[in-house]
Design a protein around this nucleic acid. Structure first.
Length: 166
DNA sequence: AAGCATGACAACCGCCGATGC
DNA sequence: TGCATCGGCGGTTGTCATGCT
C-alpha cells in the first residue's frame, strides 16, 4: 500500500517518494549528474536556491524582531525565521551569532576600559535585579552571573549601549 | 604585495520525532 | 510492535571575502 502523501505548510510534498518522483530524480541525475545526498540537496534548496529567499542585509526591524523573539523563545530558529518572510532559520541563526559575538566583544572591550572605575563600585541587590531585568537573554544566565559578580560598572554602560543600538 | 585576523555565510553532522511498512 | 526512512532542527565547522598590518 502506497503511503498517503502529506504536504507541508508551503505545499511541498512530504512522506515517501512516488515512482514518478523517483523517475524524475533518476532522469535528472542521469542527465546532469549529481553526487549529492538528498539531505544535502534539500538543505541547498531550503537555504539558498528557493526563489522566495530574500538576499541582502537584515533590516533594523528584522534585527529587532530576532532579538525580541529570541528573548521570548530561545534558540528556536525555525520559529523565529517563520516570522521573517524570505529568511531561513540558518540565516537567522548565523546573523544572531554574529550579533552575539559582536556584543561579547563589546563587553570585553568595555570591561578592559572600565577596569579602574570598577574597583570602587559594588551593586546593591536592587540595582542587581534592575540590571538583570534589562539584560537581553542572549547573555545566558551563566554568562551574566560571571560578568555581574565582578563587573557591575560595566553593566551600566552595556545597558546604555544596548538602548542606543536597539 | 604578502600574511594574518575577522566576519559573514554556507554546509555538515548528529539527533529526534513522524510516518508508513 | 519494531524497524527503516524521511524531514526538520540546532550546534558546529568550513570556506571565502575583506580589511588591516
Amino acid at each position: 500500500m502506497p503511503r498517503t502523501p502529506s504536504y507541508d505548510k508551503s505545499g511541498l510534498r512530504k512522506g515517501i517518494w512516488t515512482v514518478e518522483e523517483d523517475m524524475k530524480l533518476i532522469a535528472y541525475i542521469t542527465r546532469y549528474g549529481l553526487s549529492r545526498c538528498g539531505k544535502s540537496c534539500r538543505l541547498r534548496w531550503m537555504n539558498y536556491l528557493r526563489p522566495d529567499i530574500k538576499r541582502g542585509n537584515f533590516t533594523q526591524q528584522e534585527e529587532e524582531l530576532i532579538i525580541r523573539m529570541h528573548n521570548e523563545l530561545g534558540n528556536r530558529w525555525s520559529v523565529i525565521a517563520a516570522e521573517l518572510p524570505g529568511r531561513t532559520d540558518n540565516e537567522v541563526k548565523n546573523h544572531w551569532h554574529t550579533l552575539h559575538k559582536r556584543r561579547v566583544q563589546q563587553i570585553n572591550t568595555n570591561t578592559v576600559s572600565n577596569e579602574e572605575t570598577m574597583a570602587t563600585k559594588s551593586p546593591t541587590s536592587s540595582q542587581m535585579s534592575d540590571i538583570t531585568s534589562q539584560l537581553p537573554s542572549f547573555l545566558s544566565s551563566s554568562e551574566f552571573s560571571s560578568i555581574a559578580e565582578d563587573d557591575f560598572g560595566f553593566l551600566d554602560s552595556y545597558i546604555e549601549s544596548m538602548d542606543e543600538s536597539f
